[in-house]
């Protein structure tokens, strides 16, 4: 019985899950690995997952990424920058690329909170539930992350120079 349900869920959500994973790790190939690992775990636990699998799947996604990230970071030299992307055409997008680069410089935990807040559009309580941290911690992590983005050297000059 769980099969069609699982397949339907994946069909509906795969694009969103892929993008969430991409936002967490900044690399499409790794995002696919992450999503597949998360979905494998979800499939194994499918009968235990309630009506709304999203929080569960997000949680595995975030935890798996955190553990991979830890391992890689320990073993290799960390790179603050994300992989290069093709140059976009318009100024607005350029600004957003700068913002994207700055996102890559956030701590992994802050970044996960930002992604769940501004991409998955979840409220603080659900983010706290997914990341296994107190709501207050999530709130302060997000506000700290926003503050960091605002003072990021790369974001600042673009905003002040080109837009004002």
């Amino acid at each position: 019985m769980d099969r069609p349900e699982f397949a339907t869920y994946v069909g509906d959500r795969s694009a969103r899950l892929m993008r969430t994973a991409y936002l967490l790790c900044g690399d499409w190939a790794m995002a696919e690995d992450l999503v597949q690992t998360a979905l494998t775990k979800a499939w194994l636990a499918w009968h235990r997952i309630g009506d709304d699998p999203d929080p569960y799947v997000y949680r595995i996604l975030a935890n798996t990424h955190a553990s991979w990230w830890r391992r890689r970071w320990r073993g290799e030299v960390p790179t603050a920058r994300l992989p290069e992307q093709a140059a976009p055409a318009t100024t607005a997008i350029e600004d957003r690329d700068v913002l994207w680069d700055a996102l890559g410089r956030l701590k992994e935990q802050e970044r996960a909170a930002i992604v769940l807040r501004y991409y998955a559009d979840l409220d603080y309580a659900r983010i706290a539930d997914i990341l296994g941290r107190p709501t207050g911690t999530v709130r302060s992590q997000i506000s700290r992350a926003l503050a960091k983005l605002r003072v990021d050297r790369a974001v600042l000059p673009v905003r002040e120079g080109d837009r004002e």
Partner: peptide
């Protein structure tokens, strides 16, 4: 920025089958 960056998302079509 979060929605648009790296837009060329190659979403694999057989995710469910692979996971299963």
């Amino acid at each position: 920025a979060l929605t648009e960056h790296g837009r060329s998302a190659p979403v694999p079509h057989d995710l469910a089958a692979v996971a299963e």
